[in-house]
């Protein structure tokens, strides 16, 4: 799929796919004339790009261009390799079964001992699942990443991809594309790990992701699943650091699909409740001489969030 940002027209994005130079799945996203868009998509479905281009280019609607004109431009750029085909943003399947209490870690960085400790502690405290919000691995090349990935599989930890995990999975860790020493099987496991994971906690719907690196991936759409949550939390509020924009965030809540938002980019620990939405920043698993994690529990009175720590030396 290609995601193209047009200029001078109503839709914010144009999505399409190419298959053997044939046009597929055209969508005008974020504005524009819905009926006309569907007509364009229907007429172009399966048509060869070279056959379609003369019909598209040069049509003017506003600002010297139009949706068909911009689509034509995008098709040409795709043909010429000037825009990259994007992998879709992967969202995990919503886990079955009712959760009432869960534990969350982030930035585990290959620390299997810490993961094991938090898994045991949180289980003893009644947590039914442990989530890892990205960067399970650190690219150390000492076997720690393999151990962490295998531990996550063995314990059924619900993992989302962080930027380090993704680079390792794609074999591009390090600025110079240095070879990754993680086993191929574990890289494959990381590769199929979703970027976004959904869950239900009691009667609340939640979403878990690492952070803003998702919005920089070519397949990210401002109008995709949970994009409002990701953009509001990561970009608009700078990971909840800029409290001055919270009034604007409250206005954006009506676009949220989730009422619990878990993310783990900054290493900071913070819980903010705006309206009916709980936004929780989970910091790094290891902080100095402590392992830290979040316990999140559904109660009839609302979601209770506790940040726990335990000494590394125990």
């Amino acid at each position: 799929m290609y995601v193209f940002k047009p200029q001078g027209v109503c839709p914010a994005e144009i999505h399409f796919a190419l298959e053997n130079n044939a046009i597929k799945d055209v969508r005008m996203v974020g504005g524009g004339c819905i009926g006309n868009s569907q007509l364009i998509a229907g007429l172009l479905e399966g048509m060869d790009v070279d056959k379609a281009l003369p019909f598209l280019r040069g049509i003017v609607c506003r600002n010297g261009t139009s949706c068909p004109d911009q689509l034509g431009k995008a098709l040409l750029m795709a043909q010429n390799g000037e825009i990259a085909e994007a992998d879709p943003i992967t969202t995990g399947i919503e886990e079955a079964g009712e959760l009432l209490k869960l534990a969350v870690i982030s930035e585990a960085m290959g620390d299997s001992e810490g993961i094991e400790r938090v898994y045991a502690l949180s289980k003893a405290e009644g947590a039914q699942a442990l989530y890892s919000l990205g960067n399970l691995t650190r690219g150390g090349g000492d076997g720690a990443d393999d151990a962490a990935v295998e531990l996550a599989v063995k314990k059924g930890i619900r993992v989302v991809q962080g930027p380090i995990d993704r680079m390792i999975a794609l074999g591009r860790f390090g600025d110079h594309g240095a070879e990754v020493s993680v086993k191929q099987a574990n890289r494959d496991r990381l590769l199929i790990t979703p970027l976004i994971r959904m869950f239900n906690l009691g009667d609340r719907h939640g979403v878990a992701f690492h952070g803003g690196f998702i919005q920089d991936l070519p397949g990210f759409s401002d109008f995709g699943p949970y994009a409002s949550e990701i953009l509001s939390v990561c970009y608009l509020s700078d990971y909840l650091r800029d409290e001055s924009v919270f009034p604007a965030m409250e206005t954006m809540l009506k676009h949220f699909s989730a009422s619990i938002v878990l993310f783990g980019t900054t290493g900071e620990w913070k819980h903010v409740r705006l309206g009916e939405v709980d936004m929780i920043n989970v910091g790094s698993l290891r902080s100095g001489e402590f392992y830290r994690y979040a316990l999140i529990e559904w109660t009839k009175g609302g979601v209770v969030v506790q940040f726990r720590s335990t000494p590394v030396e125990n």
Partner: peptide, 20 residues
């Protein structure tokens, strides 16, 4: 500008706006 888009957020921040 639409605050659901990155472009809209960028504009919002540049203007130092706080509310809608």
């Amino acid at each position: 500008w639409d605050l659901r888009t990155r472009e809209g957020i960028q504009r919002f921040k540049r203007l130092r706006a706080k509310s809608l």
